[in-house]
Simulated scan of single mutants.
Amino acid sequence: MSAFGVASASNSNPNKSTEVVSPPSDGVSSLCFSPKANYLVATSWDSQVRCWEVTKNGTSLNTVAKTSMAHDNPVLCSAWKDDGTTVFSGGCDKQVKMWPLLSGSQPTTVAMHDAPVTQVAWISEMNLLVSGSWDKTLRYWDLRQPNPVHTQQLPDRCYSLTVKHPLMVVATADRNIIAFNLQNPQAEFKRIMSPLKYQTRCVAAFPDQTGFLVGSIEGRVGVHHLDEQQQSKNFTFKCHRDGNDIYAVNSLNFHPVHHTFATAGSDGAFNFWDKDSKSRLKAMPRCNQAIPCSSFNNDGSIYAYAVCYDWSKGAENHNPSSAKTSIYLHLPLDTEVKPKPRTGAVGKK
């Protein structure tokens, strides 16, 4: 019995997911799939940006390491251009690099900040790159110009950013959440205090742009609508908890087709949820280390997640012999990500 317990406790892949070949040598800070094809990019604390090609044949997945690029310091964030040929990455060297992935050209620096760059997003509708930093600014970049076209002061360091044009939501330190209408990007649309009591880890804009999800270090998610008339629909819920143990919610991803969403946490679990019916669709078995980041591919048929030590328990609890970094690919079943059919006359008052 004890041997079984030890085996299960050390299992980094209890979901029998496909493991990505040639993973990073240190923790993964971001994952993002190309909007056009099954190319997956990961940024890491080992100062590398890596790309894999994922091929899918029925229920079997195969990965091939394609190429990689180096920053001078740990890399914290990544985003694809909408054409699927170019990747942006930012990090502790205070710059954003543009990487023409498929052409073989060298990366170039396209954005600079005064402190580490924590968030980056490509806004295709505006043909602009936006970057957020611990220097308490957002900067918008036209790639043909060396200087930002606009610098937006933030109330504090940028922790998370999500864009679903025309909505952009930025979460900063001190629990500030700022919504922008990108049709007027130089003015804050709305600033609120997070509905959660503790530090924000992640935000995700609703696919219909009416609001956002926010996740925090306290194992809780807030569902927030921007319209004053919709405030009665706001709620928070607990997740990524185990008895008295509370774990950070590190990642929030909406399914691109069904508009349900996934949470991933420092407890090593990922779960699928339907906010409209306020229900959990599926709880997955826990991995033996934290999940710091995750991403759906463009059609929602693949969910990528990283499993590694997240340093939340400090250097003294880091065990290099057991702290392997892995990236896994899960094929979501319909029952995991499709909303449950509504019963009765829901929505009619």
Rank of each mutant, 00 (worst) to 15 (best):
S232I: 06
Y198A: 13
A7H: 09
K16G: 06
F296Q: 10
T162S: 15
T108D: 09
N317F: 12
A115T: 04
T118G: 00
K313D: 15
T325R: 06
D26I: 06
C51H: 00
L196K: 12
K56Y: 00
S8V: 15
L40Y: 00
G222D: 09
S321A: 11
R50S: 06
V170P: 09
Q48S: 13
V87W: 01
L102W: 03
R175V: 05
S47A: 14
A65M: 08
V49E: 03
K94T: 10
K81Y: 05
A269S: 11
P285L: 11
V163D: 05
S12V: 12
V64F: 03
D26G: 05
W311I: 07
N38L: 00
K275D: 09
W52I: 08
A65R: 06
M284E: 11
D156K: 02
V307H: 02
W273F: 13
V6W: 15
V54E: 00
R144S: 14
L143T: 11
Y198Q: 15
Q48F: 01
A205P: 13
L143N: 10
L129H: 03
C308E: 09
N317Y: 11
N297L: 00
V221E: 08
Q186F: 04
Q186E: 13
S295R: 00
H225L: 03
N253I: 06
V75N: 02
V20P: 07
D274P: 10
T162Q: 12
A70N: 14
A187E: 14
F237E: 06
V41W: 00
Q231N: 02
Q152C: 05
C77S: 09
L252C: 14
S160N: 07
T263H: 13
S10R: 15
P155H: 04
T85Q: 13
A248H: 06
A3L: 14
Q48L: 04
T172L: 14
S22M: 08
K348P: 01
C92A: 01
L252T: 15
Q230C: 08
P256S: 11
D114C: 05
S29D: 03
W122I: 02
S60C: 09
Q153L: 13
V49S: 04
K324V: 03
N15S: 09
V87F: 04
N271L: 12
P107F: 02
F272Q: 04
D82H: 09
A9C: 10
D93G: 03
G243D: 10
L128I: 00
M284V: 11
V49I: 10
A3V: 10
P207Q: 02
A269L: 01
S17I: 02
N181S: 08
V75G: 02
T86N: 01
V249L: 10
P292E: 10
R220Q: 14
W141Y: 14
A204M: 14
V169I: 06
P74G: 05
F261E: 07
S301V: 00
V223S: 09
K190Y: 00
W311Y: 13
S133C: 05
T118F: 02
F189Y: 13
S279E: 15
N298Y: 05
T343D: 11
D276I: 08
A115I: 01
H71P: 04
S105D: 15
S2W: 15
P116F: 01
Q95D: 04
G132D: 05
N13Q: 14
A304Y: 01
R191L: 03
S326G: 08
L143A: 12
K197W: 05
V130R: 04
Q289F: 12
Y247D: 07
H225Y: 14
R50T: 00
A187F: 05
F206E: 07
I291E: 02
D242R: 13
